[in-house]
């Protein structure tokens, strides 16, 4: 994700910078900017190249790919490939198609992002505004869970979810992941920077703790919420390990997990359906990219600006 934000920052200059560029003498070639653009173009090439090749290759039939390797150009199989991938039931059980996997991923991404935002806001709110004994300790305990990523605690997590009978459910897929030290930390820092007088004014205005949160703190944090939501959506969408463990029924497969599964199914005596796997990969990439592109302005704003 740092790359995406970097790109977005590059094409959203401040109005002042735009104005200055317009007034600068146009003809003088500045080698430093040629160099800068060279670096940027090279970066774009590195990042976009594989995606473009994956896309173009997915429009060829699998035999051509098997024979010639990945291909640039237009293979003419675009419609049929994507139609198959999206709508044809496949897998062992013939229960799942691309559309269902996209839906599952969407549930996963949204649930993950919304859950994380809500839980982080509530945790940060408690830590910053309710001066209960041990608030600081609580915060550092939460913070230290950064040292315990999912991969480290995956067995106990699995054990808990399994014993609750939540395997192959959306709940089991999402809930164990939504506690977020990162989100809590960001919201804590933000809440700490909100002037104390705002809380006092709201108290005098008769706002209870819930109204203060909903009417004042959440609206003030909305760029922050947007930024964290976007990051978390992409992270949630791209989850691989956890869904792989949690879901054995194909009806709950997410798309990232499905790519691999479908490749495995189709590897047999036949030539693997490279085109379909690639098409699935392209489809898997699309929603996070769209989200980032659509919300990039808010995203940048959330990271660099505070409105108080």
């Amino acid at each position: 994700m740092p790359d995406a934000s970097f790109d977005a920052a590059a094409d959203a200059p401040s109005p002042a910078a735009k104005g200055a560029a317009r007034r600068a003498p146009a003809l003088r070639l500045r080698w430093s900017s040629v160099f800068n653009h060279g670096v940027l173009i090279f970066g774009v090439f590195l990042m976009m190249g594989p995606v473009v090749i994956a896309f173009t290759s997915s429009t060829f039939d699998p035999i051509a790919i098997h024979r010639d390797g990945l291909k640039l150009g237009w293979g003419g199989e675009f419609l049929s490939t994507y139609d198959t991938v999206l709508f044809e039931k496949s897998g062992f059980t013939k229960e799942v198609n691309g559309l269902l996997m996209l839906f599952n991923s969407m549930v996963m991404g949204l649930g993950f992002a919304i859950g994380k935002v809500v839980v982080s806001i509530l945790a940060a709110y408690a830590i910053v505004y309710f001066r209960f004994r041990g608030a600081t300790v609580c915060f550092w305990v939460i913070f230290s869970t950064l040292l315990l990523p999912l991969e480290v605690r995956i067995l106990p997590s699995y054990e808990v979810v399994q014993s609750l009978g939540l395997l192959n459910t959306y709940t089991g897929l999402i809930v164990p992941l939504i506690a977020s030290a990162t989100g809590t930390f960001f919201f804590r820092q933000f809440f700490k920077s909100v002037p104390e007088e705002l809380l006092e004014a709201a108290r005098i205005d008769g706002a209870n703790w819930w109204r203060f949160l909903v009417d004042i703190l959440v609206p003030l944090s909305r760029t922050m919420i947007a930024a964290i939501f976007i990051i978390m959506f992409v992270v949630g969408w791209n989850q691989y390990l956890w869904p792989t463990l949690m879901t054995t029924e194909e009806g709950y497969f997410t798309i990232v997990r499905g790519i691999k599964q479908i490749m495995q199914v189709w590897i047999g005596a036949n030539i693997p359906a490279y085109n379909e796997a690639l098409a699935l990969a392209v489809l898997a990439m699309l929603p996070p990219v769209l989200i980032v592109v659509i919300f990039q302005r808010m995203f940048i704003k959330g990271l660099v600006e505070t409105e108080k």
């Binding site: 002037p195 007088e197 006092e200 004014a201 709201a202 108290r203 008769g206 706002a207 609206p219």
Partner: peptide
């Protein structure tokens, strides 16, 4: 509670709700 005291207060930095 402050809200039930029948008082109103002007703060040094005004403490207006910036999003409203």
């Amino acid at each position: 509670e402050p809200a039930d005291r029948d008082i109103a207060m002007v703060f040094q930095n005004y403490a207006l709700y910036p999003h409203m």
